[in-house]
């Protein structure tokens, strides 16, 4: 799914070369990943594993940094760095 070298159907797809400026959302997710890495709370290898564990439909439906966000949350929950209860409470307050 993530291991895309030479695979169809993408081997026939044109490349979208438009710039697509990053949003505040994108920059924030990227920065959170960096802070978690610097503090050794979550490695880049764990992030990749989390992205690879996303269901295939999500992998291609979500944007790049939307995938990162879901992988970060899943890994932090798995490692008990944050809990489901904490996240649920915070979601209710948004």
């Amino acid at each position: 799914m993530h291991d895309l070298g030479g695979v169809s159907p993408f081997i026939c797809a044109p490349v979208d070369k438009e710039p697509h400026a990053l949003t505040e959302f994108d920059r924030t997710v990227d920065a959170i990943r960096q802070v978690l890495g610097q503090k050794r709370i979550m490695s880049v290898d764990e992030l990749r594993r989390g992205i690879e564990a996303l269901p295939e439909t999500d992998y291609h439906r979500l944007s790049y940094y939307q995938r990162w966000l879901r992988a970060i949350v899943a890994i932090l929950l798995e490692k008990d760095a944050i809990t489901e209860a904490e996240l649920r409470r915070a979601l209710e307050q948004q």
Partner: peptide, 28 residues
């Protein structure tokens, strides 16, 4: 993991994650 994250709106999920990380001083 029982939470259904894929159905959660991304902006809301990010705001919630930021709040938890700030609360716990993991990432201010």
């Amino acid at each position: 993991m029982s939470m259904n994250l894929t159905e959660t709106d991304s902006d809301r999920l990010l705001a919630a994650l930021r709040a938890v990380l700030a609360d716990k001083a993991i990432a201010t």
